[in-house]
Design a protein around this nucleic acid. Structure first.
Lengths: 193, 193
DNA sequence: AGTATTTCTTAATCTACCTCAAGGATTAAG
DNA sequence: CTTAATCCTTGAGGTAGATTAAGAAATACT
């Protein structure tokens, strides 16, 4: 149940077995079924969720009722509404399972306590945030300048699993495209091969 | 020379006068004239720059030679190529002064040393990164879903100084618009008033 | 297996924004 | 004060992607 977590932490920092065993005690395991929500827009996000197995997404909803996907989280990734989680304010995102998933939840207070107990964990979290920030910058750049096809090719080159595990209309939303446009883009690409 | 820095830190963490005096010793003051560059795309970014006075911008350049503005940094803000600064890899952004500016530079090693010497400084940096990440998420959302006019109005509502201190074509680039489109958008807005 | 739900595709039309082109306004420089 | 940069505006025409509408395909449900 904690394999992915161990793998993720080990990729960033060095942790002894004892320290990792200690880490485990701070998490709450939770299973969630496809289409169930972990967080509803407007609620306070009290968890930072690590995905052991499955896929989640976060999305916001605009005035016209369109869902705009902010993030996908595959096995081994974290997902939360960071603003709400850190400040205790209302969330702007809904977090929902795309597949039946197994999560490890870290509450605000457990996170503080864990960072105190295991300093390397704080460093691990800082490194994750740095990487997430750098990746977001690149996404901004793509969102502002790339064509529909460029965005799709760049995304699938980086995360090929997206094609098989995520409904196409959600990928379209993530890229800021309509489902129809993404369908046409894919057709164009396939015709050229 | 360190007023803005003191103000910025005090807004996030509590720091004694002695600690702040200690902090100051880690920075290298630098003046930079309008249009001069602090970092050239492709070089390694060895500084995290705090803007005491003036404005800088960071931008990347695409195949067609278009400059895409990633960030503006006003008085009291930080600017760097985070990826290059943290990993030592080549930078993807150029950093350039929009006005004659006064900077406080923190090298990679000075930053490490400062975080060791003054723990509150590490917390300050973490808080800045968290806020920057949250703001970037909102920018992604806007880039993907907002119209030209919505993007412009949202930006100027958040940072009114942008209108008077930054050339319009750079604002256009930041928003992912052509200068012509931004000019027309502004005209439309003014006609309605 | 059969119905309902969700997902994907295709086509016709429309529109926000881009491109290209040129002139005007402002600021900087000798 | 004069010329050169830089910056901003305006117009005509083009295009990528949105919208609307419909049906096909796949998946889930009982």
């Amino acid at each position: 149940m904690y394999e992915q977590l161990k793998k993720s932490i080990s990729q960033k920092v060095v942790l002894s077995n004892e320290e990792f065993e200690l880490c485990k005690t701070f998490f709450i395991p939770k299973k969630i079924r496809k289409k169930q929500t972990l967080l509803l827009e407007g609620d306070v996000c009290t968890y930072n969720a690590f995905v052991e197995k499955g896929i989640l997404r976060s999305y916001s909803t605009d005035e016209k009722g369109n869902e705009n996907v902010m993030q996908f989280a595959f096995d081994g990734w974290w997902i939360t509404d960071l603003s709400s989680f850190l400040t205790g304010g209302n969330s702007t995102y809904t977090i929902e399972a795309i597949e039946d998933s197994e999560l490890l939840l870290l509450t605000t207070t457990a996170r503080e306590a864990l960072m105190d107990a295991v300093p390397a964990f704080e460093r691990y979290q800082r490194l994750l945030l740095q990487n997430a920030y750098i990746a977001l910058q690149s996404r901004v750049n793509g969102a502002l300048t790339a064509t529909a096809e460029e965005k799709y090719l760049k995304l699938t080159a980086s995360y090929p699993e997206i094609i098989s595990r995520i409904p196409q209309h959600m990928v379209a939303s993530y890229l800021g495209l309509t489902p129809e446009t993404l369908s046409r883009v894919r057709k164009q690409i396939s015709l050229r091969k």
